[in-house]
Amino acid sequence: MDAFNQQQTPQETELARLIAVTLNLEVVAAEIDPLAPLYGEGLGLDSIDMLEIALAVSQQYGVKLRADDKNNREIFSSLRALNGFIQAELAG
């Protein structure tokens, strides 16, 4: 558990909390492995969950996720990848 805590950056922890609250997850946000897949086997999320995350992210951060974006699978592959995308969008 400590290992996970060390792995998440503060920004990732914030995003993990948003995801956990949005989806009413039973896991502790700080325990989400930043490198584990969000979709499918990792957290067991389905495509409706992914839409919920996309909506919550755009509301919270003002970052738009596009359907035609070929990188969606990359962006949503893990907590770290999603956070990286958000931060890059905010910076750009």
């Binding site: 495509s47 839409l51 996309a54 359907a67 969606n72």
Partner: peptide, 14 residues
Amino acid sequence: GLGQLDSMIIVAER
């Protein structure tokens, strides 16, 4: 198709 990571994101966008 359903069952892709971004299936529902595509639906919402369309």
